[in-house]
């Protein structure tokens, strides 16, 4: 990854139908208590200015077109931080009629449309802990190592 991105990570918060628990934890991680700014993290309000998307929720079909447009608007190199069990693999909604089942399914759709994502970082938890989000930023910056290997299995029908 580019050294330039590592020192300055501008994030955009993208809710794709989450229950808001992860969103509250994101706000918590960006408060002065956790001081994400010391790692170069800054919250921006437009995906055009962002480097990484803080994606929460299992991605509902209703939100899918907007999510794709938001990801397209992020100039490359672009990264996704999949936050919470829902974003990581669909969570309790992994096989329901109204959601696509998290970021792994989204990546397939993006690939079919020719939209490239330069890196995806999975942060499991229901909801995630603010420390876990900062850990993911540490991995993105290359100062920490991944803890576990992520593997998603579809439910057997």
């Amino acid at each position: 990854m580019s050294e330039y991105i590592k020192k300055s990570i501008w994030v955009f918060h993208l809710n794709t139908g989450s229950c808001n628990a992860c969103d509250i934890e994101i706000l918590d991680a960006l408060t002065p208590y956790f001081d994400a700014e010391r790692l170069g993290v800054k919250l921006v309000v437009s995906p055009r200015h962002a480097d990484a998307l803080l994606l929460t929720g299992p991605i509902t079909y209703e939100s899918l077109p907007k999510v794709i447009r938001a990801i397209e608007a992020v100039p490359r190199p672009r990264f996704i931080l999949a936050l919470g069990s829902c974003a990581v693999g669909g969570g309790i909604w992994h096989d329901t009629y109204s959601t696509i089942g998290g970021v792994p399914e989204l990546l397939k759709i993006l690939k079919n449309r020719g939209i490239e994502v330069d890196g995806v970082y999975y942060v499991p938890g229901c909801p995630i802990r603010p420390e876990a989000l900062i850990y993911a930023v540490g991995i993105l910056k290359g100062i920490l190592q991944k803890k576990v290997k992520m593997r998603v299995r579809k439910a057997i029908a």
Partner: peptide
């Protein structure tokens, strides 16, 4: 805020 804050060259990095 009693926090560390960004490095002194952060705006240049941005």
């Amino acid at each position: 805020h009693s926090r560390i804050g960004p490095p002194i060259l952060q705006t240049w990095y941005d």
